[in-house]
């Protein structure tokens, strides 16, 4: 601490360099992120398609959130509710298996009493799907699970007499089938990442706690539920919230896991909806897309501030523990 206050006196004349070093970040951020964010807010008050130059006030929000008397408004409302619902269903459906699997794996990986040969290799292999281009993963699964009897998986099922050739399974176009497939792909992509995150959380727990518990005769299972889980709570909460923010942005897989010509309405997420609305040349519905973005922004801000609070809490604790260790 003394060192720092001494440094402050010496570094007064260097303050301008601080600004110089952080200036490029702020310049670029303001132009390419902050201004576009405000621009999105601004565009959300304008119309759609042919009326995109017209000021319409809050009517986009009104239509998205509450619908309206005419058919267009109520269909906009229904679509918005559907994409929100899809996003939620797809997130829950990949998060629950993923967190359970990752917790178990992380507990095993960090358990010193388990003798598992080749731990490092397992981690590397389990993380690999995360590094593979999502667009290519989607393409791979679409091609493997093609709807027709020529799709590799359907062909295999037909050859083995599990299904008959007239009724191949609609893995890509079927609403439930496609949802399940996307959940599987997302889980496959992300469980390795979550496992490693949770592992580092578990390794941050003081090892002597486990020792003391096992001397007192606590079993593995007891230790997991009585020590690991409660102490892992902040990291778990953090994982849930970041995964939720990530889930709200789910785009690549749902956008590409379809028959290539039209979006499957059961797997259209909010990110896909926004993208289609402003980019599709036939639509250019800036108003709808922008107000949906603003709503998405509100939701993520709430989630983000939870994350922020967890982070700051950790930072404060970290500083405190450092201080005390210095004092000691």
């Amino acid at each position: 601490m003394a060192n720092r206050s001494g440094g402050r006196i010496r570094s007064i004349s260097y303050a301008k360099y601080g600004y110089i070093f952080i200036l490029p970040f702020f310049l670029v951020y303001v132009v390419f992120q902050l201004y576009p964010l405000f621009n999105t807010f601004y565009l959300s008050f304008f119309g759609n398609g042919s009326t995109k130059e017209e000021w319409v006030g809050l009517s986009n929000y009104q239509r998205l959130l509450f619908g309206g008397a005419d058919r267009v408004a109520s269909s906009v409302h229904e679509t918005f509710l559907r994409v929100l619902g899809n996003t939620f269903v797809l997130w829950v459906g990949n998060f629950i298996p993923q967190i359970i699997l990752s917790l178990v794996l992380a507990a095993w990986f960090t358990n010193a009493r388990l003798k598992i040969p080749g731990k490092g290799a397992y981690k590397i292999i389990m993380y690999m799907p995360n590094i593979i281009t999502a667009a290519s993963s989607a393409a791979l699964f679409v091609t493997l699970f093609g709807d027709s009897k020529f799709g590799a998986v359907n062909a295999m099922l037909i050859n083995n007499g599990i299904i008959d050739a007239l009724h191949p399974i609609q893995f890509v176009s079927g609403p439930t089938q496609a949802r399940i497939m996307i959940m599987i792909i997302q889980t496959w992509m992300w469980y390795g990442n979550t496992t490693i995150m949770l592992m580092s959380g578990i390794m941050g727990i003081n090892g002597s706690l486990f020792e003391a518990a096992s001397i007192d005769g606590a079993s593995h299972t007891q230790q997991f539920f009585k020590i690991t889980l409660p102490l892992l709570k902040p990291i778990l909460l953090y994982t849930v919230v970041t995964s939720m923010i990530g889930g709200l942005q789910m785009f690549d897989i749902p956008a590409l896991y379809n028959n290539g010509t039209s979006q499957n309405s059961a797997t259209e997420t909010i990110a896909v909806y926004i993208y289609d609305n402003f980019l599709n040349a036939n639509l250019s519905n800036y108003g709808n897309a922008a107000s949906a973005s603003v709503i998405l922004f509100m939701i993520t801000s709430i989630l983000g501030s939870i994350c922020f609070a967890i982070n700051r809490d950790k930072d404060v604790k970290h500083k405190k523990s450092k201080k005390t260790s210095k004092l000691l």
Binding site: Q33, N39, F251, I274, S293
Partner: peptide, 14 residues
């Protein structure tokens, strides 16, 4: 934590 999707309409239009 601000996702790209949130700014993309404004970004693209800009």
């Amino acid at each position: 934590m601000v996702p790209v999707q949130v700014t993309s309409v404004g970004f693209y239009q800009f």
